[in-house]
């Protein structure tokens, strides 16, 4: 496969990769008055990969992610999930479709327990009269499942009944990631998951993201942190001027190469073919 890439770099946009496309966007346009945030942006995510999304401020990176996670509706263009067109009018729609998003600002309810946070909005009812008639919750089952989710992702927190505010920043992000991973059927989107964290905690979350991918969920990772991107991304989507400038192969390039594409110092047409990812 790599031989094909090197011989025919222009085919990188054709669907010759055997891994199925899980999430795709074609020609997304989003305007806010005079400002064009997305100007025909494309996107693709294949099964089992971590696709990093990088771009300068105003490159359309966050609009793209918002469109994929349902936070904004594009004016035109389409989004395909497992090859089927989907319309995501709200984050709730995206969630129903199987796309979970982890937001950068540690989106948890601090005074509530880990188990409650993991199951927030998806609580399990008791399977008896109390549950069916009065909506009583099955707290024991949720506690047990929480332990299982956290162990699966190798997050070392012992008590699921402690309040999230007693955790460190990295552990809190761990809770948010575990929640997304537990309920996502197709895709997990992570918006700057390490931005609020220190070095050690950031590495912990990176490890977590790898675990999520290795469990079989493809990940879209939005990050400003180049070392983090290069450490875990399988491919790098570069957003520029409301479009996709390129999909780069992090193993073939340096960080300054990526920055050159990102800032426009390297024009998309001039990008050496071997920089491009499959």
């Amino acid at each position: 496969m790599s031989a094909i890439t090197e011989l025919e770099p222009s085919t990188h946009s054709l669907n010759i990769d055997p891994r199925p496309l899980v999430l795709q966007a074609k020609g997304l346009v989003k305007r806010y008055g005079q400002v064009t945030a997305l100007d025909g942006a494309d996107f693709e995510l294949r099964a089992g990969e971590i696709m990093a999304v990088i771009g300068d401020n105003g490159a359309g990176k966050s609009s793209l992610i918002k469109a994929l996670s349902g936070a904004i509706s594009p004016d035109s263009g389409e989004i395909l999930l497992d090859g089927q067109p989907v319309v995501l009018k709200s984050p709730i729609d995206a969630r129903r479709a199987g796309i979970e998003t982890v937001y950068q600002d540690l989106a948890v309810a601090p005074a509530m327990t880990i188990a409650e946070n993991l199951f927030l909005g998806r609580e399990i009812r008791r399977n008896d009269v109390l549950g069916q008639w009065f909506g009583a919750l099955d707290k024991r089952k949720m506690l047990e499942d929480s332990i299982a989710y956290m162990q699966e992702l190798k997050i070392g927190i012992r008590s699921m009944s402690q309040a999230v505010e007693t955790l460190s920043g990295g552990q809190r992000q761990g809770v948010a990631v575990a929640r997304a991973a537990a309920f996502a059927r197709h895709v997990v989107i992570m918006d700057e998951p390490t931005a609020a964290l220190g070095v050690k905690e950031g590495n912990m979350v990176l490890e977590l993201i790898r675990n999520v991918r290795d469990r079989g969920l493809p990940v879209v990772l939005i990050s400003h942190n180049m070392p983090h991107v290069f450490e875990i991304a399988d491919r790098i989507h570069v957003a520029r001027l409301g479009r996709r400038a390129a999909i780069l192969n992090p193993k073939a390039i340096t960080m300054s190469d990526a920055v050159a594409v990102m800032t426009g110092a390297m024009k998309p047409a001039d990008i050496p073919p071997h920089w491009l990812a499959q």
Partner: peptide
């Protein structure tokens, strides 16, 4: 409780 704790996070969980 969740709404009082973090309304935005609660909204984003689909509640």
């Amino acid at each position: 409780y969740a709404v009082g704790n973090n309304p935005e996070a609660t909204r984003l969980t689909g509640i």
